[in-house]
């Protein structure tokens, strides 16, 4: 016998699922939305996406290689996902240096400072996005109007998002029914014909990605459904109470970052709870806070803030919401 045998504790089999496969599964799920934004915004979308992904991966690589002097982990794909999500959360005509700053903040501040993958309390892409929103409010809110495929990059015609129009209009005392004429129809919203961040506009494409992820068991239904259902319920009550002041639930679900947030941002493994019950509480929190910010807050859109706020509650949810232990409710003897 000349083989030296390997010895390890049980189990001696492992599933074929890996972190890398999960991350690339998310990337695949994001492709329809990327295609949609290229369709609506042209090459700007491609440039922004490439810059963001490259900047995120490079930041992670450089920090690990030269600052921490540890093994680099860029091959796990998490930086690519962060890069894609960051790009999806900014306008497609954003100057490149701003995107790079966002990527450095996302990876450098929100992820690596806490110890890298798995240790960050807040969604890195959203931290980057919010940082940019506060630091560069003008550039971050000049949304290009979808104009079909074109090759220009920064020369796009800009306009307000549907949510911005409604928010501004209500403040000026206009009625919802009048404002509704100024925004695209619900069907157009569903296909993504509106101003907004690069990846958030096409609800149809995002839902397609979400179904793919649920099918591949990358995510469970709990968080997206909880976010969307709670937001729909809350806006529904407001709408029924006073349809002249509040927009209808479907409008809220289809506009802004609601779909992107619910399906891709809130479901980030690291910053979401681990039990189904916790996920539903977390998702409901996001839905409610989003609507609060949209209706009464200073910003017309609140998904990013809502997710970041609920991220802070995740450790608490993980600590107090436990799965049902086998044999717990049964009395002894």
């Amino acid at each position: 016998m000349n083989n030296i045998l390997n010895v390890s504790p049980s189990p001696h089999q492992q599933s074929s699922e890996t972190t890398r496969k999960l991350m690339f599964g998310v990337v695949i799920a994001l492709l329809p939305a990327l295609a949609a934004s290229v369709y609506y915004f042209g090459t700007g979308a491609v440039i922004v996406t490439l810059t963001s992904v490259l900047a995120c991966v490079a930041t992670e690589f450089l920090i690990q290689k030269y600052l921490l002097k540890t093994k680099t982990s860029i091959s796990d794909g998490s930086a690519i996902v962060t890069g894609l999500l960051l790009a999806f959360n900014v306008p497609s005509n954003l100057p490149l240096f701003i995107i790079v700053i966002g990527a450095v903040i996302s990876i450098g501040v929100a992820k690596m400072t806490f110890g890298g993958l798995g240790n960050n309390p807040f969604n890195p892409a959203l931290v980057g996005r919010v940082f940019l929103l506060i630091s560069f409010p003008v550039q971050m809110t000049s949304w290009p109007v979808p104009s079909g495929f074109k090759t220009g990059y920064t020369d796009a015609v800009t306009g307000a998002t549907p949510l911005g129009i409604i928010s501004e209009g209500v403040k000026n005392g206009e009625s919802i029914s009048a404002l509704m004429d100024k925004v695209p129809s619900h069907m157009q919203l569903f296909y993504g014909y509106m101003g907004g961040s690069m990846g958030e506009i096409a609800a149809a494409a995002l839902i397609l990605g979400g179904i793919f992820m649920i099918w591949r068991k990358i995510i469970t239904w709990h968080i997206p459904v909880a976010v969307l259902a709670s937001a729909a319920l809350f806006t529904g009550i407001l709408w029924l109470a006073d349809p002249t002041k509040f927009a209808d639930p479907l409008f809220h679900l289809l506009t802004g970052g609601m779909m992107l947030g619910a399906i891709f941002m809130a479901t980030d493994y690291v910053t979401s709870p681990m039990t189904p019950k916790g996920m539903i509480i977390y998702g409901t929190g996001i839905g409610v806070i989003t609507v609060l910010i949209r209706t009464w807050g200073a910003y017309p859109e609140g998904v990013s803030f809502a997710i970041l706020i609920m991220n802070a509650f995740v450790p608490l949810l993980n600590m107090y919401i436990k799965p049902r232990r086998f044999g717990k409710e049964v009395r002894h003897g």
């Binding site: 030296i4 045998l5 390997n6 010895v7 390890s8 504790p9």
Partner: peptide
Amino acid sequence: TSNYDGAMNCRVAHAL
């Protein structure tokens, strides 16, 4: 005589 492939922890290996 063998190659240990479990968690890098002496207590785990010792118990195994």
